[in-house]
Simulated assay, not measured.
Amino acid sequence: MAMDATRTTLSPSAAAEAVLAFVNTRAIDGSREQLGDGVSFAQWLGQEGLVGPGSLVTDADAAAARELRDALVLVLLAHAGEEDGEGRAGAEEHLRRSAQLYPLAPVITATGVQLLPTGGGVPGALATVLAAASDVALRGAWMRLKACRNPPCHLGFYDRSRNSSAAYCSPNRCGAQVAMRTYRTRKAQEDGR
């Protein structure tokens, strides 16, 4: 993940895809929780190439990963316009603590700079997620990484709209659900008068 502050594009970088892959490990629309325990987290880490076969991954590691993921989801919800000041502040503080727990080191070459984990195993894998988030931010695309504002969904997505105004992962699915809930609530209030 080269750190190169280039112009924002409407297509996600590999780093953005990596952050979204991590954020979207939650059980959404009938999918299974991929960070539910050490075994499922180890499977996900192996699929993503973040740890080698036989790496020790515990239930405590899975819990730490879920906490990191939840903090990222709250920040991505803020990118989508969801206002939760206390929740967001707590998430940002958790991300600061995570940066201390899962440190990165700059690796400078003639062709660029990369942030790489200083360790391996699960801490190195979680540091890789933080490195990917840093890469996205340095590319100027951090605000395009969002979480769907539809409460049951919160799926992470890359906002490809020209003006970066998307708030839902799918306007036809989640956007329509929110509009219908808003309409029904307004209609019930009008009928109650």
Rank of each mutant, 00 (worst) to 15 (best):
D61T: 05
G87R: 03
Q177V: 14
G156Q: 03
E83G: 04
D61E: 04
A21E: 10
L68R: 13
A137Y: 04
Q43T: 15
R186D: 03
G46H: 12
A132G: 08
G36A: 15
K187M: 06
T109H: 05
S170P: 05
P171M: 15
A179D: 02
Q34W: 00
A15M: 04
R160K: 11
V19M: 06
C148R: 08
C169L: 01
M1C: 09
L50F: 04
R139N: 07
D191A: 13
V73P: 10
Q43S: 14
G49E: 06
R162E: 15
Q114F: 00
L116F: 01
G36T: 12
C153L: 08
D159A: 06
G120L: 04
N172W: 07
Y158Q: 09
A62S: 08
D37H: 10
L77K: 12
S134P: 02
V39P: 00
G120R: 10
D37I: 08
M3V: 15
V39D: 14
L10D: 15
A137D: 08
R162M: 08
T109F: 03
A2R: 15
F157H: 11
L104S: 05
V129F: 00
E93P: 01
Q34N: 03
P123E: 00
V23K: 04
R26V: 11
G87E: 01
D29V: 12
L45E: 11
W44I: 13
G52K: 10
G87L: 01
L138I: 12
A62H: 10
H94V: 00
M143Y: 00
S13L: 08
E86V: 15
R173G: 12
H94K: 11
A147E: 09
L116S: 04
A147M: 07
N172Q: 13
R88G: 00
Y168T: 07
P171Q: 11
M1S: 15
N150F: 11
A71V: 11
S164R: 15
L45W: 03
G54S: 02
V19Q: 08
E33Q: 14
E86Y: 03
A2W: 12
L138Q: 09
L50G: 06
E17T: 12
S40I: 10
R7Q: 15
D29Y: 07
L138C: 10
A15W: 01
A65N: 12
P106D: 06
L138E: 08
A63Y: 03
A78N: 11
A63D: 15
G54C: 01
V19W: 02
T128K: 03
